[in-house]
Amino acid sequence: MSTKKRVAATVNGDAAEFLCEPRQSLLEVLREVLSLTGTKEGCNDGNCGACSVIVDGTLVNSCCMLGVEIDGCEVETVEGLARNGKLHPLQKTYLEETGMQCGFCTPGFLMSSKALLDAHPDPSERQIRHWLSGNLCRCTGYDKIVRAVQKAARMLEAER
């Protein structure tokens, strides 16, 4: 069995220090070591996007990254979206526009949507669909998800 490594990172703004096996994916570390189970496993091979998180500003599939790789990094997960009891506009609009049904893919979609809006505050429909093309949703047919992102972009613009 492999020796555990010590990793220090910032997770959702808080310092996190933990031990993990080199073979553990970031997804496994988030879920099993840090008990952040909002990030989901849908395929464990990078094809469904349910495990999407943001590492140092870049959108990644946490199942395709190792836990030890986040040493010194800033990680954002769905648990960090709402701040001080206030929902992120995306969380609000996914609810208002019914941009989810079973809700399992939703954390991943929220993180991909956030990465998109961080990079492109006023995305076109095509851009939204492109940025969300790494996330599979089997329930909604994407229509209401795209609308939720469009509405969140308008809300964020109004806030600025």
């Binding site: 609810l95 809700g103 399992f104 929220l110």
Partner: peptide, 10 residues
Amino acid sequence: KVTGRAVYGD
């Protein structure tokens, strides 16, 4: 479900 709190199978 939008905050990651909902408890699914795993």
